[in-house]
């Protein structure tokens, strides 16, 4: 990834040294990482909003309004995935590492895969 804004669902205060939240809809904050020419230029913290049933489009609109171009999740439901794609946010997948920084570095280096349709949660255990 050469340029853009990455969003990472995060626990607590977030930040590059923080940890990732497993459930993006219920995360405390989003860590936003601005990338220019393959380098991290700025890190900011965006408060998540209240999560209600069927309110999957709230975080989609929140991140879209904040010009996010890439999101990294450990899991995601089909509706929010389609919502992010439809507003032009690419969704990447890593369900192994809890730390934010190595995942961000891998995304910038082009080493993180985009989530596939058959990796969505639902129909028997997963996250929204």
């Amino acid at each position: 990834m050469k340029s853009g804004r990455i969003a990472i669902p995060s626990n607590g205060q977030g930040g590059l040294k923080g940890t990732r939240a497993g459930h993006f809809g219920h995360c405390d904050v989003f860590t936003l990482v601005d990338v220019e020419n393959g380098e991290i230029k700025e890190v900011s913290i965006l408060q998540n909003q209240e999560h209600v049933q069927g309110g999957c489009m709230v975080p989609v609109n929140l991140l879209s309004e904040n010009r996010v171009s890439a999101l990294v999740v450990g899991g995601i439901g089909m509706r929010p995935l389609m919502g992010f794609r439809q507003v032009g946010i690419n969704v990447y997948h890593d369900d192994q590492r809890i730390d934010i920084e190595p995942v961000v570095n891998d995304l910038i280096a082009g080493k993180l895969p985009e989530i596939k349709n058959d990796q969505v949660c639902g129909g028997g255990g997963g996250q929204v």
């Binding site: 890190v43 209600v52 069927g54 709230v58």
Partner: peptide, 21 residues
């Protein structure tokens, strides 16, 4: 009632920006 609740939350995100670290 549920739609009103979602609408309130949606309105709250208008203009919400990240805080720079």
């Amino acid at each position: 009632d549920h739609l009103a609740r979602i609408s309130r939350i949606s309105n709250q995100i208008q203009g919400v920006k990240g805080d720079r670290i």
